[in-house]
Simulated assay, not measured.
Amino acid sequence: MLSSRYLHLHEALGLGPMWLNRNAVFRPQQVPNPAPQPEAALKPEAALKPVARAVQSAAAPAPAAEATASRLAAVQAAAAHKKSPAQAATPQAAARQAEAADSARAALAESLHTSWHTDIRPSEIMVASICPATEDGLAGQLFSGSVGTLLDNMLAAVGLQPQQAHKTCWVKSAPVFTPTPDAAQIAAALPQMQQELAATRARAVLFLGQFFEAPQQAKTLQQLCGDTPYFIIPHPARLLRQPQLKAQAWAELKKLKRLLAA
């Protein structure tokens, strides 16, 4: 029996016609089966941890989120595109560039200077970040884009629909985004947060972000929550940037899930 690979080799070498015995049996070339992939590479999505699966689901931006990100990038690029007079062709051109950059910065600040008023209704939990993100200011919605998608996915992992969580932020009005408001801002916003928590009759509070992990904030959180249990996890925006923190987030979310199931 003659393998076809010898015939192909003979032709590739340019050796001309190949004479075969008339009794020879032609056997097609066999292609070896692909090597089996390791089991870990074939792990089904259902085997992923809930927070890991949530991060994976939120990674692909929705069209609305892409539009918001594009708008943000355009505004920030315009604000940063301020050249010095030496780089400009004329002093008049330098003045126009400076004016355009100032206008872009003013537009960005105006977009962020929004007082957030969310509808308060009875909810299973209250979810709070420290301050609206830049993207939220441009989108006109708290937890917008992929951050909001991830947050809703994490809520689903503990058995909650988005409407079962009252989403809010501590500092609701700021001229620019800041992840670390000063003590005066935190104290000024505390009474309104207490009113929100009382109105929602939430069974627990879920705080998002490193700000709430600081030891100096423990007393303020206790003032807000009283006997209401609270949990602190990394902000969804940080989880998208640092997926290695998902185990830490899931450990806290499991505690919240047990509380809600009790």
Rank of each mutant, 00 (worst) to 15 (best):
161 Q>H: 11
140 G>W: 15
183 A>R: 12
156 A>W: 13
24 A>H: 15
78 A>R: 14
136 D>Q: 01
154 M>T: 05
34 P>Y: 08
250 W>S: 04
237 A>T: 00
185 Q>W: 02
38 P>D: 13
128 A>W: 00
133 A>H: 10
80 A>M: 06
116 W>K: 03
151 L>M: 08
218 A>W: 06
203 R>W: 11
143 F>S: 08
232 I>F: 00
62 A>E: 08
62 A>H: 04
204 A>K: 07
101 A>L: 12
136 D>A: 03
205 V>Q: 09
178 T>I: 07
217 Q>M: 11
41 A>R: 06
86 A>R: 11
146 S>V: 01
80 A>K: 11
138 L>S: 06
79 A>M: 14
160 L>I: 08
95 A>Q: 11
261 A>C: 05
22 R>A: 08
59 A>N: 00
224 L>W: 01
163 Q>E: 14
225 C>N: 10
117 H>F: 10
6 Y>S: 06
150 L>F: 06
246 K>T: 04
89 A>F: 04
78 A>H: 06
141 Q>F: 07
186 I>P: 02
229 P>F: 11
244 Q>C: 01
218 A>C: 03
186 I>D: 11
170 W>C: 02
216 Q>A: 12
38 P>L: 04
229 P>C: 12
242 Q>H: 10
48 L>E: 11
241 R>Y: 01
257 K>H: 14
127 V>R: 01
